[in-house]
């Protein structure tokens, strides 16, 4: 494909293959998510919690990590983080349908509760922010073992009020541990807007209290997020300690499939935000940069549609665990 004067990704050292990979992963996350909503509304799956509007932040962040040595302690919206770490459309559909083969929990947990040792993703729960100190613990153990691994942990802006965030950020800073605290600020904690959650202008401002860098980036631009993340990762690997990054995101859906955001969001806000849909914008960028054309875009979209269809059919027909299997895995057997 032809070179263009717009080559922001090249200055970041990202190849065409990598940025196309980012685009594909963002779209894959979006399309799986959209399908889950259809399945929910059709009565086939009881629950969905979305990544829509966060994909650029998530994928941009994940691409700055090394999936062969780094660890994730993600939160429930992070489909765009776990996909680059290996979670497939089939895995995610297994999770949505709560099937035995779901690598996250074998059908025990709600969708979005990611975790899989083979993908280096620590199992997560629903009480928010509990994963944040876990990331610090993995970083501590990794350093004791002499590994140069980095641990990524993410959470929403509402969660940045939890004691576990503050305790973990302080702990990691005191011990200079390689942790990236990644706040995906979509301006709503279910129904409560940012103004009623956080009194400082940016969640990144909270870093000052822990003596660590706090960076606020446009979460709609995967390259901006990648840039901030890469610096944080390099800093962490150099032994200089953690970084707090706020990625400013949009929430294109209600909090979850059980929420109706028309009750609390200003009319037209979501529609206005969607004009800045990160996937559309990144597609434009790639086309302007000469990395993507209509044909290649269609190929990617066709591949994704097929992936999602196949994953859905497979998962829908896959068996659940035996009911009495719920008695297993309380203690080591």
């Amino acid at each position: 494909m032809g070179k263009s004067t717009v080559n922001k990704h090249e200055t970041l050292g990202l190849s065409e293959r990598q940025v196309l990979g980012m685009y594909r992963d963002m779209l894959l996350a979006r399309k799986i998510d959209e399908r889950m909503w259809l399945l929910n509304r059709a009565g086939k799956i009881p629950f969905v919690i979305s990544c829509q509007g966060h994909e650029a932040a998530q994928v941009g962040a994940a691409y700055a990590l090394d999936k062969n040595k780094d660890f994730l302690c993600p939160y429930y919206r992070d489909m765009g983080v776990v996909i680059p770490f290996g979670m497939s459309a089939r895995d995610l559909m297994m999770n949505a349908f709560a099937r035995a083969e779901d690598p996250n929990s074998g059908g025990r947990q709600m969708p979005g509760h990611f975790g899989s040792k083979k993908y280096r993703i620590l199992t997560g729960s629903s009480p928010v922010t509990t994963q944040v100190p876990h990331a610090v613990g993995i970083a501590l153990a990794g350093r004791m073992e002499g590994k140069d691994l980095v641990v990524f942990t993410s959470f929403g802006e509402g969660s940045s009020n939890q004691g576990d965030f503050h305790e973990a950020a302080n702990f990691a800073s005191v011990y200079k541990l390689p942790v990236i605290f990644f706040c995906e600020n979509n301006k709503y904690a279910i129904s409560v807007p940012y103004s009623k959650q956080v009194a400082v202008k940016s969640v990144a401002d909270r870093a000052a209290a822990y003596g660590i860098p706090g960076i606020s980036v446009d979460g709609g631009d995967p390259l901006e997020v990648y840039k901030a993340m890469r610096e944080a990762v390099e800093r962490a690997r150099r032994g200089e300690g953690p970084t707090l990054i706020e990625a400013r995101c949009f929430r294109f859906t209600p909090h979850s499939s059980d929420d109706d955001d028309r009750l609390y969001r200003p009319k037209g806000e979501v529609e206005e935000d969607k004009k800045k849909d990160p996937i559309l914008l990144f597609g434009h960028y790639l086309k302007e940069a000469g990395v993507l054309d209509e044909l290649a875009d269609k190929e990617i979209r066709d591949w994704i549609a097929k992936e999602v269809d196949e994953a859905m059919v497979y998962a829908e027909n896959a068996p659940s665990a035996a009911p009495e299997d719920l008695l297993k895995h309380v203690y080591a057997e």
Partner: peptide
């Protein structure tokens, strides 16, 4: 550790899950 019990437990949970 810093004086913060949830972090003491939570950091220990992470290290234990990692294999320590």
């Amino acid at each position: 550790t810093p004086l913060a019990e949830s972090a003491i437990a939570g950091v220990a949970v992470g290290a234990a899950a990692y294999g320590f």
